[in-house]
């Protein structure tokens, strides 16, 4: 049974408090995507976090931030780092249907 889908990586911790985002980014396969939820959405508004990533061969196909979690933290009006998309829970569910495995860090 071959796995035809890319993985979805979910990070839930602030990059300023924990290493899980960095550790996740070190383990991406080509085509995988990254979803930032809960305190990890602080990474979405911080351009500097992503500087080193742009040149990596295994950068995520898509980087998304969960919009209700941005709102909850008063970040709804902030501009997101380049290339990061917003997604709501319906979009989160859709991402889960189009990826596998779902890897929470």
């Amino acid at each position: 049974m071959n796995k035809p889908l890319p993985a979805l990586h979910i990070v839930n911790k602030s990059p300023f408090a924990a290493s899980s985002l960095e550790q996740c980014l070190q383990r991406l396969a080509v085509g995988d995507s990254l979803l930032l939820i809960e305190d990890a959405v602080y990474a979405a508004i911080t351009e500097e976090i992503w500087d080193g990533l742009r040149t990596q061969p295994n950068k995520p196909a898509r980087i998304l931030a969960l919009s209700p979690d941005l709102c909850q933290r008063g970040l709804a009006d902030k501009s997101l780092a380049e290339g990061i998309e917003q997604v709501d829970y319906a979009g989160f569910v859709e991402l889960v249907t189009t990826h596998n495995p779902i890897h929470s860090w």
Binding site: N12, E38, A90, F92
Partner: peptide, 19 residues
């Protein structure tokens, strides 16, 4: 931790989409 609230919102959204 927010995990429980996130899981609940995800559960509702997945049922809403017919999963």
């Amino acid at each position: 931790h927010q995990a429980s609230a996130s899981a609940l919102a995800f559960a509702r959204a997945s049922l809403d989409q017919g999963h």
